[in-house]
Design a protein around this nucleic acid. Structure first.
Length: 491
RNA sequence: GGCCCAUUCGUCUAUCGGUUAGGACGUAAGAUUUUCAUUCUUGAAAGAGGAGUUCGACUCUCCUAUGGGCUACCA
């Protein structure tokens, strides 16, 4: 969800300003490759209706869009930084670094690879050019680290938060490139590609704010400050209850999807999706758009093109937004009601077939949808709300029987059969009129009579207006059900 | 621990120094309805705390508290 919202804001911003929305796959961690993940991302964006203008699927002038396919372009920039003195080779092994961290932790400290200790560690700054070259030639594993200035105030600008200043003394010498897999880390690859791909705006999650100084410094060291993109760090999406940012586990725990589409991890772990849970993509997108942004008016329902028209970064809020599954449902219900009976009927028919009802035409389905859609949140609610229109009740709710199948009611239902029988054109309007006239003439209690009728036909004591129900059932079925109720419940 | 960001009803949010602090979800009550739902009306519900600045602070500054993020040869 968080990823989709970030993509959405990027999409809206790009559209709003006539730019291009680019999907680049940042797969520089060869250890964490997940088969199917890339395809999943493309499909999810497509379902949401926010297809990229350029990217792995669409192609484009900046191809390739997969960092693993751009390996050869990163090393030269890493070397350029070494040459300019902004970076250096380091030979410390992961084990050595882990040991240093453990050691520091034991003393209640945190190990930081920075100006204070870099001259004591295994790197080209200590070894000098010759020894470094020898080590590399000998096949020792190395990484290239950024040489973080010892103490410098870096003033940055964030489109959402304004000016942020950080002193480099609190930062560490981040790894930019690793010889082990000949791949850069995020920081280098991101800056190089953003430059090469002519990225004008970076809109990303707030978790990236702490590395913004590094990114500023990288642009400067590479000589690209002049064309550096503008940054906007989005507030995080938080769990509905408890603390922390929304994570994939929360959904299954709390009963709502966290993924746009159902996701089956290679491990076999399955996460439900908004699509499979019956959400309309427009509703999902609308809900996400308002989680951290608002147009300043009281309108809440926005089609995508309207979001494009209204979106602006200065109306994005600064604080994390707690996700509310109830409101997500409300959005879906709004979109469901706005859809035509016919459109919903087309979605309902497959469900009916699944239930073994395959002789229903679109017109009948639409007629049913018309009377149940305002009580539904999802298309999948339709069956629960209308099954009695397709299958006669096999039992009668005991509470309803106790409440309504008593006194003169059974006799009135018997009498009603004659009234219904006499209706020529069995339409809701005619049924309604005939019943009301009859009840009025006999001075029967309306509630008692109508609820008995409902019980006899539906088997329960809730549901849409009975005239509509009877019309959909037809005269024959309506009378058959009344007679059966009289037989089973007694007169 | 260090650094950074944030802080208005339970939740999402409006307010860009002067408002009875507005709306939505949820919730409570009532009305409508043959039932349920819908719809409508109404209600409860908020500026974390403390100092400043100012004629006047939810709004600006600082401190504290709280929440969150980052602190990897992950992104």
């Amino acid at each position: 969800m968080g990823g989709v919202r970030t993509a959405l804001y990027n999409y809206l911003f790009a559209r709003r300003h006539g730019g291009d929305f680019i999907l680049r796959i940042e797969d520089t961690d060869s250890q964490r490759f997940v088969p199917g993940a890339e395809e999943y991302i493309a499909e999810a964006l497509h379902w949401c209706g926010i297809d990229p203008d350029e990217g792995v699927v669409q192609g484009g002038p900046h191809a390739p869009y997969r960092q693993s396919e751009r390996k050869e372009i990163y090393l030269q920039y890493a070397l350029q930084l070494v040459a300019s003195g902004d970076a250096y080779y380091a030979f410390d092994t992961p084990d050595e670094l882990d040991a240093l961290r453990a050691e520091a932790e034991a003393k209640g400290d945190t190990f930081t690879y920075n100006a204070a200790c870099r001259s004591m560690l295994n790197n080209s700054l200590r070894f000098g050019t010759e020894e470094t070259a020898a080590k590399i030639a000998a096949g020792e594993r190395w990484v290239i680290r950024f040489r973080m200035p010892e103490s410098e105030e870096v003033a940055m600008n964030d489109l959402i938060r304004g000016e942020v200043v950080v002193n480099t003394s609190t930062l560490d010498d981040k790894v930019l490139y690793k010889s082990s897999d000949e791949l850069p880390t995020y920081h280098l690859a991101n800056i190089v590609d953003d430059h090469l791909m002519e990225i004008s705006h970076v809109i990303r999650g707030e978790e990236w704010l702490p590395s913004l100084p590094l990114h500023y410094l990288l642009y400067r060291a590479l000589g690209w400050s002049g064309t550096q993109p503008l940054f906007a760090h989005l507030p995080l999406l938080l769990k509905p209850t408890g603390g922390g940012k929304l994570s994939k586990r929360d959904g299954d725990k709390m009963g709502f999807p966290v993924f746009p589409l159902r996701w089956e991890a290679p491990t076999g772990e399955v996460s439900r999706g908004y699509r499979e849970d019956g959400y309309f993509p427009e509703a999902f997108i609308n809900m996400l758009a308002l989680l951290g942004w608002n147009p300043g008016t009281e309108q809440e329902i926005f089609p995508l093109d309207e979001l494009v028209e209204l979106f602006s970064l200065d109306r994005v809020s600064k604080s994390g937004a707690r996700f509310d599954p109830e409101k997500a449902k409300w959005f879906n219900a709004q979109y469901l009601r706005a859809k035509s009976d016919e459109e919903l009927a087309a979605l309902f028919l497959p469900i009916l077939r699944e239930k073994g009802i395959d002789d229903v035409c679109v017109f009948l389905a639409a007629r049913v949808v018309r009377i149940v859609k305002e009580r539904a949140t999802f298309v999948s609610d339709f069956w629960e709300l209308s099954h009695y229109l397709f299958v006669a009740p096999t039992e009668y709710d005991p509470k309803a029987v106790e409440k309504f199948w008593k006194g003169e009611n059974p006799a009135r239902i018997a009498e009603m059969c004659g009234i219904l029988e006499a209706i020529g054109d069995f339409t809701a309007a005619n049924i309604d009129r005939a019943l009301h006239d009859w009840i009025a003439a006999k001075e029967y209690p309306m509630g008692q009579v109508m609820n008995s009728l409902r019980l006899a036909i539906v088997g329960e004591s809730k549901g849409p207006g009975m005239a509509d129900v009877c019309e959909i059932l037809g005269k024959e079925e309506t009378l058959a059900r009344l007679r059966r109720a009289l037989g089973e419940l007694g007169k």
